[in-house]
Structure formats: structure tokens, C-alpha cells
Design a protein around this nucleic acid. Sequence first.
DNA 1: TCTACATTAAGACTATTTCTTAAACAAGCT
DNA 2: AGCTTGTTTAAGAAATAGTCTTAATGTAGA
Lengths: 191, 191
Amino acid sequence: METIIKHFDKYLPLDDKEKEALISRLTERKIKRKQYILQEGDTCKYFTYVVKGCFKMYGVDNSGAEHNLTFAAEDEWIADIDSLHKEKASKLFIEAIETSTILQVSKGNLWYLYNKYPKFDRNFRVIIEDKYIELQNRLLQTFSTTAYERYECFLEQYPNLSNRLPNTQIASYLGITPEFLSKIRNQRSLK
Amino acid sequence: METIIKHFDKYLPLDDKEKEALISRLTERKIKRKQYILQEGDTCKYFTYVVKGCFKMYGVDNSGAEHNLTFAAEDEWIADIDSLHKEKASKLFIEAIETSTILQVSKGNLWYLYNKYPKFDRNFRVIIEDKYIELQNRLLQTFSTTAYERYECFLEQYPNLSNRLPNTQIASYLGITPEFLSKIRNQRSLK
DNA sequence: TCTACATTAAGACTATTTCTTAAACAAGCT
DNA sequence: AGCTTGTTTAAGAAATAGTCTTAATGTAGA
């Protein structure tokens, strides 16, 4: 629980009442590797904070291929916000890549926190803004660069993830096959 | 100014003090077609609300091609949030597609509103969340569908924009050439 | 009205990426 | 510790979605 308190110190730090309110509304869970915390068709019920471990959020296309939208490792939040907010069936999966420990806030509890302590509005505004910026940069890259460049950029931006994740997962994030990623890595090693 | 007040009624409606605070911190501007409100290299200084007209936000790649990230028409907000928040040089352009009327809040004034009236944190949190959802869906589509499908989806989601925008702009949004969009339209008309 | 830009058309082209097969390697599970 | 399953590299052939080019026609802004 300490890690999530420290997490908020990066934004507007919480006072004692806010800390208590937050902690009393969080549920800790252990999630095994390959276990889902959200499956396509279900409604996303929680905003999830990763204490330890790593998750991927992905969609599956008509031909069955997975496309990773994002990863979340230590000290990051993950949810299908579309499904959570609008209480509709999700098109996405959130799956543990490693055995993980998480803290979850239900939608109801999150709304309670928002209404009672406006600081949570602020902090989550900033958290979402950062996620928005990330997506925007990624979309621009997808349009305007080759897989080679996107891979280089991924390495720079997520040096720790790139060591930790299997290449299949990185390939899916970049929008290419693992075989092609292997070619890119080979090309890079020749330079 | 009335339109922006009504805009906030969709979220948490503003009380009289908040309305006054907001209005006194907005600047109205008329922007001609093809005029920029943000250029690559500059720092984004304003969050812009579109009263009337239409804008595009785009990046330019190494070979000089434009890639539209988003459009903003009546009753929508637009800014390069990355540049605005982190006060760094933008990689993007925001340009009027039609002669437009806008209301702008500077970063300083926006921060003032956030700090004085937490309701703005709430409202902008929700505004950003909606934009985030849009981007997420778009990224997933870009990975998992053909240009044909993306065009169909664009027509469904933005029926008014699709009548209003030149095809060159829609093509740039979809990540294809105008010639190829023309082929897609031709294909569709045969069905 | 004029001019510049937007749209359609259609064929040739191509570059990035996939597909396939296979062998070697690494890692998780009992 | 050993088995089994999944991951990585390799390399050539193949596909195809989308580009390029040219050109004629249409349309909107000034």
C-alpha cells in the first residue's frame, strides 16, 4: 500500500484523510501469469494499479491475431476506460504477462473518491493526460514511420520493458509478426 | 460565450462564480482558413475551444507528408497537450480548415481555474478521457483493419465531418493517399 | 470569371511485411 | 531435474495493400 501512496506524491500528494479513504477502498489481488483481469465481452469493473508484475491490454482482430495496445508494469494504472466509464462490453483483454500483485478500485469507489476528494479528479486527470500523450505519439509514429524506426523508439522509451517482455509481445505492440521483428533485430546488429 | 457554458452543462454544470471565472479568462479569436494556431517547433500556449469552424492537428514526416491526428469542429477542444503541459516544442501543426471562431485559455489561466475551482479538474478529466477513448479505438483499428473498413467506420462515427472535409484531409486521417481513398469510394459505390 | 486545388480513373509498380518451414534455444511447470 | 511448451533466429518465396504517375474533369474560393 505504501507504493501507491508514493505514487500519488508525484502528483498532488494525499493528506491523511485522503490516504485512508483511498486505502480502505482498494482491494489487493495476486494474479497468476496468463490470468485475465478483463476479457472481451465483459464490462471492465476496476481501475487497476500494478504493484508488482506486468500486464498487457490487447484486442483480437477478425483473423484471430492479437494487437497489444499497451503494457502496464510497476507503478502504472491500467483499465479499458471506455468500458469502465460507459459500462459497456469491452472489446479488449487485460492479461498478466508475469505473476503479479495489483490494487483495484471499483468504479463505485472511484466515483466516491472523485466526489468526496477533488484531489483525485486532479491526479487522475494528470494520469490520463500522460496516457493520452503516449497514445498520440504512438499513433503519429504508426502513420509516419517503418517498423524498424518504431522498434528503435520503443527501445528508447521502454528500456526496462524491452528486456522483460518476450519478442512476441513486442512484435504485437509494434503491429508486426515476431519473425519480422527478428529480422529487424538482425539488421540492427549489423550496423 | 453561451455555447461554452452549455458545453459544460454536459458534464458538471458550472455555477455563477465558475462561469464568470471561466469567461473572464477566455480570449475570443477569429481564425481564417489555412491559418495556424500552432506550428511545429513552437510551444502550445492555449487550450482551444471551437465555437464555429473546423481545425486539423497533424504531424509532418521525413518525406514531407502530412498525417492528421485529429479534427476539431464546433463544441470541441483542441491542443497539443504534450507541448502545453511540458512546455516543450511541439511536433505538430494545428490549422484552420474553415474560417473559424475560437475561445482560448492560456496555460496559466487554465491552471488558475484548476486550482481555484476543482470542478474544472473534473470536467477536463472527463473531456480528456473521451479523447483518450477515441485515440485508443483508432489505434486498435489502425492495427487490425484495412483502409476500407477504417473509412466505413469514419463515415459512421463522423457523418457530419465526412461531408464537410475535403477527401485529401480524410485520406490523411486514415493514413492513405487521396487516390487510394478515391478507389475505396469507387469500390463502395459498386456494392 | 479565373485559378488553384480536389476528385476520379486506371494501370503499372513496389516495398514492407507475411508466410512457411525448420532448427536451436530458453523457460516455466510438476 | 527433466519434460514440454513456447520463443527466437534464419532465410527464401510470396503476397498485397497501398503508392506512383499521368491525365482529364470537376469544384470552390478569391
